[in-house]
Simulated assay, not measured.
Amino acid sequence: MKSDYQNYIPIKAIPFVDFLVEKHSFALKIVNERATKHGDFRKLPNGKFQITINNNLNKYQFLLTLVHEIAHHVTHEKFGRAQPHGKEWKTVFQHLMLPFLHPEIYPPEILRPLATYLKNPKASTDADAKLSLALRGNEAESGKLFVFNIPNGGFFEFKNTIYKRGNQRRTRIECQNIKTHKNYLFHQNVEVTEVFSN
């Protein structure tokens, strides 16, 4: 099954991805951005399988997400019902990613944190702060900053709400909702808009 996925991944990755797509039977849909996930794998009511990937991902994020979801499909084929991100999936995902761990596909600044992440992959690449940052080119969207860039005690806006930045805990940062005074933990790589207090 050919798809326009080839426009979304690094050129050197195309032969490997073509092989995976042709070997495993699933429909691939590229969809509009979803706030809670980059991609998903599911069995449809007709018994066929479908993978969806967000269209807003850069080529390195898209490739990693696609292989992540194909790993769910292969795990289902090999083991039937298994933990979604359990040891079977981790082993399959690591194996499927091997051909892509190459400087012609991923640049060194991504390859290093990617190799570390793959030693024990998590459900979401966003859970790995270094990899998440590297996949985004270490830059926030224009006009935005990462939460970790906001000075301690500084203010920022996120989803139309103002927060005050507090202390860092490993990969998360305590932030206080100015209106309710409730504290929330923000992933350090969340993109926000800095607000300057009077």
Rank of each mutant, 00 (worst) to 15 (best):
M1K: 03
K2H: 12
N7Q: 13
N7P: 00
K12I: 02
I14E: 04
I14H: 01
I14G: 04
P15W: 01
V17P: 03
L20E: 09
E22K: 11
S25A: 04
F26T: 13
A27L: 08
K29T: 10
I30D: 05
I30H: 11
I30W: 10
N32H: 11
E33A: 15
K37T: 10
D40Y: 11
R42C: 04
N46S: 13
G47V: 06
K48V: 06
F49S: 05
Q50F: 02
T52H: 00
N56G: 03
Q61C: 07
Q61P: 01
L64N: 06
T65Y: 02
H68P: 05
K78F: 03
H95T: 15
M97W: 02
F100E: 04
L101T: 06
H102V: 09
P103W: 01
I105N: 06
P107T: 12
P108K: 13
E109S: 14
R112W: 00
L114R: 06
T116W: 00
Y117P: 08
Y117T: 11
L118P: 03
P121N: 02
A123G: 08
T125I: 14
D126E: 08
A127T: 10
K130F: 03
L131M: 03
L133T: 08
L135R: 07
E141V: 14
S142G: 00
K144P: 01
V147I: 05
N149V: 01
N152M: 14
G154S: 08
G154C: 07
F158A: 03
N160V: 04
Y163Q: 01
Q168A: 15
R170V: 15
T171I: 13
K179A: 15
K182F: 00
L185E: 02
F186D: 00
H187V: 06
T193F: 05
T193E: 12
E194A: 14
